[in-house]
Simulated assay, not measured.
Amino acid sequence: MCMRLSTVILPIYRWAEGREVWRQAEELGFHAAYTYDHLTWRTFRDKPWFGAVPTLTAAAVSTSRIRLGTLVTSPNFRHPVTLAKELMSLDDISGGRVVLGIGSGGTGFDATALGQEAWSPRERAARFGEFVDMLDALLTQPALTRRGTYYTAEEARTVPGCVQRPRLPFAVAATGPRGLALTARYGQAWVTTGDPALYDEGTPEQSRAAIRGQIERLGEACAAAGRDPGELERIMLTGFTPDRNTMLDSVDAFVDFAGRHAELGVTEIVLHHPIPDSDFAADHEVFTRIATEGLAQLSSH
């Protein structure tokens, strides 16, 4: 059974402390360490919260093996021209270890922080499609001029390009038809958090059924695009499903959770690094044991 285990480290640490958190993630053997790319997030709004790209840059020079990335970036406060330059630079600094998690964004603080009205779902989806398409072009071509409905690139240069060729991988977070079509066209991975409608009152069985349906629709989108769905990694960011409060109770609980999702076709599970007194509170010793023992137990089943 092929399953990768990764972590997401929220950008809440001053670097004197954060450096060790990212180094420990590498020492524990995680496949990748991601961070959120928001200006702030939910209950952390009035608490420390640092920028994703500077944090990942610091992590890149403090580690040597672990893959690094956003989970996820959105168009809410980004422009593809400037983001492409930052990603190219980060890929170079890390020696080709960067993956871009990317999604359409939501209606939270990021959506209005620059003074704009929150976009409608229709506009958000349209912007997302144009954003991903232009970002792909910027990262695979040395120069680009393009005038879209929402984004313009005027003789934008992205030289020398990414270390990873033809560009760094995109992990696209999507569940709707338009987003899944984007995943099939541009993605090297797909990201899910499960079904938000089941967060409060759903059951683990309902959650797994929803994820199974998402993966089936991803396969249909790939078929429509002439793409083999087996080419895509399928990443699950945990912490948003009905069993979020029990899956980290023990190594055995995690192994059961991971095994059931591996059967659905998930190939990478991402755990939040524990944060006391938050939605992501967990026993750090259990978290460490899951990192060092969990996958070994899973593969032996």
Score class of each variant (00 low, 15 high):
L248D: 07
P169M: 06
G239K: 11
E17C: 02
L248G: 04
G105F: 11
Y150D: 05
R4F: 05
F77M: 04
Y36A: 07
K47I: 01
T246A: 09
R227A: 14
D136N: 02
T175M: 13
L90H: 03
T288C: 03
T140M: 09
G148H: 02
A262M: 07
H38T: 01
N245C: 03
P11E: 03
D256Q: 13
L10H: 03
L28S: 05
T288M: 00
R42D: 13
S64N: 09
L271P: 07
S300L: 08
A118Q: 14
L271Y: 03
G239Y: 12
H31N: 00
I102V: 14
P242S: 14
A296K: 11
M247P: 10
E20A: 13
G259F: 07
Q141E: 12
V270H: 01
L5D: 12
G230A: 15
R185N: 06
G18A: 06
A296Y: 03
G213C: 09
V21K: 01
A221N: 09
T145M: 02
R157S: 09
L10E: 05
L139Y: 01
W22T: 02
L182I: 10
G202R: 15
F30M: 01
E154N: 09
R147M: 06
R147Q: 11
I235C: 14
P274W: 03
Q297R: 14
R97S: 08
L28F: 10
W49Q: 09
D46P: 00
P177V: 09
A224I: 08
D37C: 01
W49I: 11
L248P: 02
F257W: 02
T183S: 08
W41M: 10
L135G: 00
G105L: 03
L56K: 11
L5K: 07
D92R: 10
A223K: 14
L90I: 00
A181E: 12
A189S: 01
V163A: 15
D256P: 04
A25E: 03
I93C: 11
E26A: 06
E285D: 13
A33P: 01
R217N: 15
L237A: 15
T288N: 04
A126H: 07
L168V: 02
T246S: 12
L28N: 04
R244H: 13
E263G: 06
T288W: 00
P75R: 08
T175D: 12
K47L: 10
L168E: 02
T246E: 09
V98G: 02
V266G: 09
R165E: 12
P177S: 10
W15H: 04
Q214F: 11
V72A: 01
S89N: 12
C222V: 13
T35N: 00
P204N: 12
P229D: 13
S104A: 15
W22M: 08
L100P: 00
E285I: 10
R146L: 09
H261A: 01
T7W: 04
L39P: 02
A184L: 12
R147W: 07
F109L: 15
Q141A: 05
Q188Y: 06
K85W: 02
L180K: 08
R208E: 12
V61D: 08
T288S: 04
I211Y: 06
F109E: 15
S299I: 07
R97Q: 08
G239M: 13
C162H: 14
D243I: 05
